[in-house]
Nucleic acid binder design. Structure first.
Ligand SMILES: [Mn+2]
Ligand SMILES: [Mn+2]
Ligand SMILES: [Zn+2]
Ligand SMILES: [Zn+2]
Lengths: 141, 141
DNA sequence: TATCAAATTTCTAATCATTACAATTTTATA
DNA sequence: TATAAAATTGTAATGATTAGAAATTTGATA
């Protein structure tokens, strides 16, 4: 079954000129909701686009982030992770299996406190860490 | 005026054996609430302890974090920042001047959602990004 | 269609925060 | 004091990300 995601229009809507590489990367993010790293995206596309450069992956992800087409998550201190879902939600990282899960969340109350301080808020990130249900049942220590 | 913070007892309370270096680092964090990086802490202490090694700073901060004596903030994708204040609060990073500010916050509601998913939560981080009141008034673009 | 400039991609090397590892020093204990 | 364990240090390695220049592609225009 073919994806109903229109990558081309998605990029245009965020003032990003489409290209083969950009379309492949945004499609990858649409299809892989695991919050992949730049390296994982590169590895996932190199067979499909053998000329792809890792620099292009980084440049493109930074461009997408600038244009607010994706989120850049710093829940991991080693790698930045990327997310096509820019809606209001939190993330949970398992300290055992390293997976990053989505968690429903509403963050309006905190934002309003920041506004009272005179801050202009452009990004909100709520990161939870601990142990996921799988790892909690059978810890790998 | 001398600080009323008992660094020695603070470390003992977190099952950390005190040493000259460890006391200096925890005192630095007590006195500098700017969420400094490991490098800033090293630079701030090298005159006081000329033999101090940057490796020791990293080792010590990791130990403090393991023992839950401090927070390790990944609000910045370049450097980890450290905070002696382990109470429930959020952080705001200015994208212009790069300062990291404290913001009051209560995150219980989100944690409860995570618990419903079977997650065991050990850390909560709420990061806001945007422009602080100083930079907002006179943007440096 | 040929030409040219701008935009994009690519390659390579650099950067730089953090860690690995082995050697040295300090501390605790017998 | 002798010895082992713990902590600190110095150096080199690691690895994600970026810088910068060269190559390729795109798009407009003649
Ligand atoms: Mn997500
Ligand atoms: Mn803080
Ligand atoms: Zn897990
Ligand atoms: Zn600012």
């Amino acid at each position: 079954m073919k994806s109903d995601f229109n990558a081309y229009n998605y990029l245009l809507q965020h003032d990003i000129k489409p290209s083969v590489q950009r379309l492949a990367i945004i499609n990858y993010l649409y299809e892989h909701r695991t919050h992949p790293t730049a390296d994982e995206i590169y590895a996932g596309l190199i067979d499909q686009i053998p000329t792809l450069s890792k620099t292009t992956v980084y440049n493109t992800l930074n461009l997408f982030h600038q244009q607010a087409a994706i989120l850049a998550l710093t829940i991991d201190d080693k790698n930045v992770r990327f997310d096509i879902d820019t809606s209001d939600h939190a993330h949970f990282k398992c300290l055992n299996c390293a997976k990053v899960f989505d968690v429903p969340a509403v963050l309006d109350s905190v934002t309003s406190v920041a506004l009272e301080h005179g801050f202009v808020v452009t990004e909100k990130h709520l990161y939870l860490k601990g142990y996921c249900s799988s790892c909690n049942e059978s810890p790998n220590k």
